[in-house]
Design a protein around this nucleic acid. Structure first.
Lengths: 337, 337
DNA sequence: CTGTTAGCGCCTTCAA
DNA sequence: TTGAAGGCGCTAACAG
């Protein structure tokens, strides 16, 4: 547990002043070639690396982009991968920070994280599914799947309405008429848009929207359990469910199995996101794919542009229906023909 | 792009000194109840949060655990998820940092990251697949899948030899005799252990090890392409391949398809890790599962124990063979009977 | 070309 | 009970 060498240690060992070491390291001019080389040699010997913290405090810039998330769930992780690879050949490093791991409260993690890291540690931030948008942030921000429409700061999202409509139309096309919806988190814009797409598809097909078939899913498995159970215990239970994301769709399938219902035999289920687990299950989940990796890349592009003075942009990407094994024709008798 | 409020702003707004604000925030005594309440009100009004950077610089502790990775690839991401959820009800936050995003060199990212973050920003570090082990680090360290055996610092890993043996025995049991191996990164202990398991299984079955069938895979898709091609262009080409991890196994399947060979019909492939993509492909990959989430949890336990003065530990977890669709009986004629 | 000085935001003595 | 001063590691301005 040795103390890491500081710039002072280097200066002492090299027999020069701290300032000279700093200049040598950062290739500032005003240092003789001899001294420069000498200092670098000592730096290498001691294994010195400048402290990100101290540097960031003194300088404005750190060349680090922060990816701020509430927690490390599949959606955020895959996005992170996209951000990271988009940053490959830039001078920027990536730093991911989960804001609610210790501080259990789900509200305002965005502001807290931004305030703790921003202005000092990171030059810009990518906020993943923020439910509030800090107004006067100290660094440029891009929100991915934000809580609000394109009136706020820069954002990247998919066409949620279209995606949800495609999902619902797919179920309708299979013959389903009693199609339920497990809502997303009501503090996120995407949840409302997906519900809107669901409603639109039903209405266009002339199927009345039954409020009893729309229950809370909350985008998380734990928060969807109750709603999933309730749907199955309805006297006239749905034959298909459009869940607002994959985590809740998978939970829906699990709960259905608990009730002795198999998917897609007794219940068709469609999700949204296409997280890695979606394709892995049995049956594999029919879902609406968000191009998460590309979205991470898009967020990086927008952010880098803002960092060099560009205007905030709002990007919408296409969502694509991926038909797999969790949806089937209804009624089943038709499948046999 | 407003400047974030600093402790000085709070002090001025509250009409007290900076020191008093600090005491009030950190619940130090020596502040009257009235002042305390007043300061906290102003803090809330201004939306002030102490800067992680400044705090970390002054204090020793930050209550942040760092997960240091070379890059955000599936293995690291899933581990991160485990770390994050294991830290849920502790006072610690998680900070993930990719060391080689900007600085392209693959060597020594561990020391660089540690030195930049350690001692200041993070209280302890979890190093993911480090290929060197910094000796005199400034904070406690746990290595996951380290480059060296249990002689180094604390570590968490799976029984690589057993896992590799099980994978190879599975292929042998299916009737394969010409079984190739796509090696892992030679700077990682796990790569050598997996190769050893592969060799052991062959020898136990009385199958001579053919050096021509052991090629470099390097744990990454890009680095496996050449080796995969070479294997298929052998005059007496293998009927099965044990790849040292899933990324290279999937690449093996892709390259085989390019050569007009379908898996598992013409070539059986086994991977290692069970990353999310393994189960998603067509065919789904037969692989050896590393309990990545649990391993993240184990790393957290060891690290927290070390942070409260405990001794470094070395943990080995079981690897489990998961048979899916990328392996089949050989020769094919047997499958028909 | 090199060194001295000041200060980034915060916390911790120590003095009032 | 409060405030003033110093310093964590580093860099930018200024002196020498």
């Amino acid at each position: 547990m040795n103390r890491r060498p500081t710039i002072t240690d280097v200066a002492r060992a090299a027999g020069v002043s701290v300032a000279t070491v700093s200049k040598a390291i950062n290739d500032r001019d005003g240092v003789s070639a001899t001294t420069h080389a000498h200092v670098l040699r000592v730096v290498a010997e001691l294994g010195y690396e400048s402290s990100l913290v101290a540097t960031s405090m003194r300088r404005g810039r750190t060349n680090v982009i922060g990816v701020l998330v509430a927690e490390f769930e599949p959606f955020a992780l895959q996005l992170l991968q996209g951000v990271s690879s988009a940053l490959q050949d830039t001078p920027y490093d990536v730093l991911a920070y989960a804001g609610t791991v210790s501080a259990g409260d789900h509200l305002g993690w965005e502001r807290r994280s931004l305030s703790r890291l921003g202005g000092t540690l990171i030059d810009g931030a990518i906020l993943v599914t923020p439910s509030t948008m800090p107004q006067n942030a100290s660094v440029p921000i891009v929100a991915v799947d934000p809580h609000t429409g394109p009136d706020g700061p820069a954002s990247v999202a998919v066409h949620n309405v279209d995606g949800a409509r495609a999902a619902t139309e797919h179920l309708i096309g299979l013959g389903h008429r009693r199609i339920a919806h497990l809502r997303g988190r009501s503090d996120l814009e995407s949840a409302h848009q997906r519900e809107a797409g669901y409603r639109a598809a039903l209405e266009e097909a002339g199927i009345p929207v039954d409020p009893a078939l729309i229950l809370e899913g909350g985008y998380r498995a734990a928060s969807a359990t109750v709603g999933a159970r309730a749907l199955l215990e309805l006297t006239d239970r749905p034959t298909a469910v459009f869940a607002a994301n994959d985590l809740t769709a998978l939970e829906m399938i699990r709960v259905a199995a608990e009730h002795g219902l198999s998917t897609p035999r007794d219940l068709s289920v469609v999700g949204f996101d296409d997280i890695p687990d979606a394709a892995a299950g049995a049956p594999a989940l029919t879902t609406v794919r968000q191009p998460l990796t590309d979205m991470g890349g898009a967020a990086v592009r927008v952010l880098l542009s803002m960092l060099s003075g560009g205007e905030p942009e709002h990007i919408r990407m296409r969502a694509e229906l991926i038909v797999r094994g969790s949806t089937a024709v209804f009624p089943r008798s038709l499948a046999d023909s």
